[in-house]
Design a protein around this nucleic acid. Structure first.
Length: 336
DNA sequence: AATACCTTCAACCGCCGGGAC
DNA sequence: AGTCCCGGCGGTTGAAGGTAT
């Protein structure tokens, strides 16, 4: 946490998103409700664009990066709040065993969760539990963030339910929560709702799955974004509720395609970002249309960052990861 | 009740890669 | 080819709140 009213002189060699700021003084630290309000309203009205322009046009004395982070980690309407469920926990542990500290990739498989959230959860809760669970058997055990080490401790931690039912499940009736369950019918044929209220309301589909964050109340969005068929709710479909389309933090990637292949899901359908939302009141057309480019599948030398788990020789390149995913059926915890 | 210690998590920092010029 | 800008990522920090003593 940071001091809420911290004002700093922008460092020239640091964030260069802010060169156009008039007085070059940008706020840092905690976001005030007013700032949240401004950013939320701007994003809902104009959609995502250049973040430095977002900051400027929304009248925020924040750098673009800060606005982006605030939006992604807190204000985004499709965010799920609250504690991680045991299923999510298992999925995180399992994905970490495959992906290492690639939090964004893990978060991409947990709709409504952010990489920051997962990273915090891992560093605070999971690591500690793994440490505890392994301390008895391995007194000299060090940090368990290494995937291989984690795998060694996983068996005692994994719950009885089937991870794969969450991680990879092509059944439309499944209550699982991964990208594989994106309901493309809903994506391409969003229900026609009328007016902003119905857009955000639960549409009578039962109790809201998510808690309403305070920020949404601040902007007066009664009913919230989190109702009804939100992500994970409504049978686990990542669906579009009315007129608001909020793109996933990260959508289809090579890895996801690999997983989709495993589960025999036609990856050719995976073009949610190409949906034309021109009829929407809330226009997210300015969002990047090819989020594949955003994925760091090609990030190399993972081992240099401490994320390899089979010695120096294993470096996750794109094809390595694909191979991993293709070979996922042989993974000890997976049951196809 | 007071203090110390611990945990959580929002936010910052620095780095990197891609695109534009 | 070099530089700049921007978005994205993982690592880290540190204040707030919780718990133990």
């Amino acid at each position: 946490m940071r001091k809420p009213d911290q004002l700093v002189k922008q460092n020239n060699n640091n964030n260069n998103n802010n060169n156009n700021n008039a007085n070059n003084k940008l706020r840092k630290g905690l976001w005030s409700p007013e700032e949240d309000d401004r950013l939320m309203k701007y994003m809902l009205t104009n959609g995502q664009g250049c973040w430095s322009e977002v900051a400027r046009n929304a009248g925020l004395q924040r750098c673009g990066k800060s606005c982006r982070l605030r939006w992604i980690n807190y204000l985004r309407p499709d965010l799920k709040r609250g504690a991680f469920s045991p299923e999510e926990e298992d999925l995180i542990i399992h994905l970490h065993s495959i992906l290492g500290n690639r939090w964004s990739q893990i978060a991409a498989r947990l709709p409504g969760r952010t990489d920051n959230e997962i990273k915090n959860f891992w560093n605070s809760t999971v690591k500690k539990r793994i440490r505890n669970s392994t301390s008895s058997s391995s007194p000299n055990h060090s940090d368990s963030s290494e995937p291989g080490e984690v795998m060694g401790a996983l068996t005692s931690m994994i719950h009885d339910h089937d991870i794969i039912s969450m991680c990879i499940d092509s059944s439309p009736s499944s209550s699982s929560s991964s990208f594989q369950n994106i309901n493309m019918t809903n994506l391409f044929n969003p229900p026609q709702l009328h007016g902003l209220d119905s857009c955000y309301n639960t549409s009578g589909l039962g109790p809201s799955y998510f808690d309403m964050p305070p920020c949404l109340n601040q902007v007066g969005l009664e009913g919230g974004f989190y109702g009804g068929q939100g992500i994970l709710a409504g049978g686990g479909h990542m669906s579009i509720e009315g007129k608001l389309y909020v793109p996933p933090l990260q959508s289809a990637s090579l890895e996801e395609n690999a997983l989709n292949n495993i589960t025999h899901i036609d990856s050719s359908d995976n073009h949610a970002n190409n949906i034309n939302h021109s009829d929407n009141n809330i226009n997210f057309n300015t969002l990047p249309t090819n989020s594949t480019n955003n994925n760091n599948v090609q990030r190399e030398n993972i081992g240099e960052q401490g994320n390899h788990w089979e010695g120096e020789n294993l470096k996750i390149r794109e094809w390595d990861l694909d191979d991993l995913m293709q070979d996922i059926s042989s993974y000890p915890l997976l049951d196809f």
